[in-house]
Every structure is written in C-alpha cells, then in structure tokens.
C-alpha cells in the first residue's frame, strides 16, 4: 500500500531564499498527521507543491504513490484542500461553488448537486446555500472551505490552518467533523498554530522550521522528550534543595513556593523514585503534583534552537521512531 504522502529531499527556492530545504516526510494512509512550524517555516509551500500551486525546485513528492508532477491529475483527484486564505469564487452562491468544484473533479451534475448539499449539511451551513461567499460570517467562511474540500470525497484531506481566527465552539465542531472523517479512513494532513489542536487530533506531527524537518513523532513521544516538573510538598520545607541528580532522568531540584521542584524527563516514571529517595532522607511527603511538558513548550524549544536540547533528551530517553517519517 503506497503512503499517502511521501517526499524525498524536497526543495523549493525563491531566488536566494530556500523555502524547503531537502524536506523528507512520509504520511501513512489513514493517518492524522500534523505539520507544525512557525510562520515562514514552509508548511504552506509544502502543501502547495502537493496540489500543484507551487512548482518544486528539486526532490520528489508523491501522493498515494503518484508523482505530483508527472501524475498530477491522479494526485489532485485524491486531494481535498481547505487552504489558509479565502479563495472562493465570489460570483456564485456557495452551493453552486461546490457543484462547480465537484464538476471539475469529473463528478456528474446530479451527483455534484447531491454532494454539495451533503457537504454543506456536514459543516452546518446548508441554510446558507443560496448566499454568496462574501455575505458569510468568518466562521461560516471557514466551514465553507472545509465543505469545498469534502465535496470531492478526497482520500487525502489537507487542512491549512483550518481553525485560524474561529471561536472555540466552531473549532470544536470542525475538530469533530475532521476526526470523524479520519476515523472513516480519510488521511488528514493538518497545519496549525494551535498546538492544542495538534496534541488532540494528530497521530504524529512533524515540526519544521526554515524549510527543514526538525522532528517527527507522536505528540506523546514529543512531550516525553521535554522536561517535566514534579512538585513535592514536604511536612517541613528543607532549607536547601536536595541533590537528586544521581537518579535516572532527573536534571535538577529547586525550591519554589515552599515546594521542591524536581525537573526530570518523563516525570511520571521518575516520581516513585523521587518520593522513595526523599522519604529515605527523612522528608515526610504531604503532596505531589506532576506538571507535564506541553507540546507547545517542546515546539518552542525545538524551533528556537533547532532542537539541540530536545534531541539530546530523545537519546537519553531512548524514544524510538524519531526519524521514522
């Protein structure tokens, strides 16, 4: 079974600027894959190469085994794209916009009409079907972009910042729709600035910066690579922080607000050892709290210093699959 997306040393240059720098990413069929990176990281360029809106300068890109240049018709037929920018035909009511899009994909008129209605119902704007795009609210516009991506019943759904600027309720609605599609077998490629979104939805995420891949792993694996904090309240606050760095994964201990703050990789695993050690030293434990590193913190750490710190953490933690994509 070919992979949904497979790129090898993908390069895109705009004059002197290298937007993609030998980017190799693989997305499995049926996977929910996130592409994270700061502005200008190359996420949209990557997507636009797949759908033919940007021409690659080098490397290879395949969608379900088909080359994006040589087999562009098959590739584009497999993809439904909800872009970041509003790029909808303003001349027609939105129902017709969807019918036209379905038609371009070779779907006969009757079927296109049925699918347009179904897509509008799925995203909850069927009652606006005779409105033009410009008259929709911001949230409805986002829903329409998703409906347009769905109307061709794609095998690969690409969502470029789908929830940018929408309210919490709509964001959750869109998440539910996309999750259902993914559970039904549709491969989803998501780019987002909302780390929580990636954390909640994605099987795996790739973090890219300046066109290069920094990391690919599941959100849990990435979070495991970060440094957690174990807060321990003892009966009496020690005057100095005990040295626990001889324990595996423990990086340091400080006293914060009358509590011991133990920084460690995979805090959940280390906590029992920490408690045992403290009790052995005569400390009476009264409270314990573990604050896990967020994906956001890992993301910031990776994209700020190209991830040197986290990569070394990966080695010590022995996390597999870091470069599997």
């Amino acid at each position: 079974m070919p992979r949904a997306i497979e790129t090898q040393d993908l390069v895109k240059e705009y004059g002197d600027l290298r937007a993609l720098d030998e980017l190799s990413i693989s997305v499995e069929d049926g996977e929910f894959f996130g592409l994270l990176g700061p502005n200008g990281a190359g996420k949209t360029t990557f997507i636009e190469i797949l759908v033919g809106l940007v021409r690659k300068s080098g490397g290879e890109a395949r969608v379900f085994g088909q080359d994006v240049v040589d087999d562009y018709r098959e590739v584009r037929d497999a993809i439904g794209l909800a872009p970041q920018e509003y790029n909808v035909d303003r001349f027609f009511p939105i129902r017709e916009v969807l019918q036209h899009k379905a038609g371009y994909h070779g779907i006969p008129e009757d079927e296109a009409e049925r699918r347009a209605d179904e897509a509008l119902k799925t995203v909850g704007i069927y009652d606006k079907r005779d409105e033009r795009f410009d008259w929709l609210s911001g949230g409805m516009k986002r829903r329409l972009l998703l409906a347009r991506a769905l109307v061709t019943d794609p095998d690969l759904l690409i969502l470029d910042e789908p929830t940018a600027g929408v309210d919490v309720q709509l964001r959750h609605d869109l998440w539910n729709i996309v999750q259902e599609l993914n559970e039904g077998g549709t491969t989803v490629l998501l780019t987002t600035h909302y780390i929580e979104e990636a954390e909640r939805l994605c099987d795996r995420v790739a973090i890219i910066n300046e066109g290069r891949k920094l990391e690919v792993a599941s959100p849990d694996e990435l979070m495991d690579r970060g440094t957690d904090t174990i807060y321990v309240r003892t009966q009496t606050t020690p005057s100095t922080a005990p040295d626990l760095t001889h324990l595996d994964r423990v990086e340091g201990v400080t006293i914060e607000d009358g509590r011991l703050a133990v920084r460690a990789k995979q805090g959940g695993r280390v906590a029992p050892q920490v408690l045992n050690e403290l009790e052995a030293r005569g400390h009476e434990i009264v409270d314990l709290e573990i604050t896990r590193t967020s994906l956001e913190e890992v993301f910031v750490e990776l994209t700020n210093d190209d991830g040197e710190g986290v990569r070394s953490g990966e080695e010590s933690a022995g996390i597999p699959g870091g470069d599997s994509a």
């Binding site: 759908v51 098959e74 584009r76 993809i79 035909d89 899009k101 371009y104």
Partner: peptide, 8 residues
C-alpha cells in the same frame, strides 16, 4: 485555484 487543484 479551484480549477488548478482539480484533476483537469
């Protein structure tokens, strides 16, 4: 882009 991203 609606046309360009289609299989036409």
């Amino acid at each position: 882009h609606e046309t360009l991203t289609s299989p036409m």
